[in-house]
């Protein structure tokens, strides 16, 4: 292959696919968000009514707020759990083989179906589920706990379950790159375990935490399956709102909503990319 042209030819397939199936569709969303519609069809037009209706409704704002609440809670849980798991793997498991085996054990569920992983909470959390039966038999509660399934609790639990690995992996990656001599140096300089953790390990784990956060935040922000299934239709999120508008064939309304989500996602990711240079972390 002749030198100068080669990288362009090699990058072309990726650019073409992402152009056709990401950029063009996003452009279509932006365009349709200005279109008009009735109960059967959508019409090319240039109206701002879709935005006015979406952004002018207090239901929208409440839904966005609720979604951000999910984002905050799930982010906090996955960050703490993800860090502890990654920290254990990186600093306490001594053989590399064992590290790889344990890491693989964490990875396997991520490669199976999300919907099946969600459904699998039902026999555990349900009214007659494993947890309720056990609690009643032990005499801890008199009647089945209703909030376990089809509730916001269930949504948060399932999301943490589905997305925690996106936090474990990048943090583990960051922790593995920490020069062990730095830990020794901290100890020699008189730092105790906690001081080493907060002054050496956590600051050096920041890029990993940032990348994991990008994943978790965007996944929760756009989620609608988990919210619909685990809340039993009792909770709302932006993703679900868009999905509902789609199923009612209100495409321009869905598109206006989607543009708002897109702006929100891109702003959040841009903010997080200021903390971390992804190209250097890979």
């Amino acid at each position: 292959m002749t030198g100068r042209l080669a990288p362009y030819l090699q990058a072309a397939p990726l650019a073409l696919i992402l152009g056709a199936f990401l950029l063009l569709p996003l452009a279509a969303i932006v365009a349709v968000s200005f279109w008009d519609y009735d109960s059967v069809q959508i019409y090319p037009d240039f109206i701002t009514l879709n935005y006015a209706e979406t952004l002018g409704s207090w239901v929208t704002w409440k839904t966005y707020l609720n979604t951000l609440k999910f984002v905050a809670i799930v982010w906090a849980i996955t960050t703490v759990v993800g860090f502890l798991v990654a920290y254990f793997l990186a600093f306490h498991v001594r053989s590399t083989t064992m590290q790889m085996v344990l890491f693989l054990i964490c990875t396997v569920p991520f490669l199976t179906s999300n919907i099946i992983r969600m459904i699998s909470w039902v026999p555990f959390l349900g009214r007659n589920g494993l947890l309720n039966t056990t609690l009643i038999e032990l005499g801890i509660v008199p009647a089945p706990l209703e909030f376990l399934l089809f509730s916001e609790f269930a949504v948060v639990l399932a999301m943490a379950h589905l997305y925690v690995l996106f936090m474990v992996t990048p943090i583990f990656n960051s922790l593995m790159r920490i020069d062990r001599a730095l830990i020794e140096a901290a100890r020699d300089a008189g730092a105790n375990g906690w001081q080493t953790l907060t002054n050496v390990v956590i600051p050096l784990a920041k890029p990993g935490i940032a990348i994991g956060s990008i994943f978790v935040v965007t996944l929760v922000l756009g989620d609608f399956v988990t919210v619909r299934f685990m809340s039993g239709g009792q909770s709302a999120s932006v993703g679900l709102m868009i999905a509902n508008e789609i199923s009612l064939l209100q495409y321009p309304a869905a598109a206006a909503n989607a543009v708002a989500v897109l702006v929100l996602v891109l702003l959040m990711v841009a903010a997080m990319l200021r903390i971390v240079d992804i190209r250097k972390e890979l």
């Binding site: 569709p25 996003l26 965007t218 922000l221 756009g222 993703g239 868009i242 996602v265």
Partner: peptide
């Protein structure tokens, strides 16, 4: 990767 799936 970061654009929500429902949007795609």
């Amino acid at each position: 990767l970061v654009v929500p799936s429902i949007l795609v």
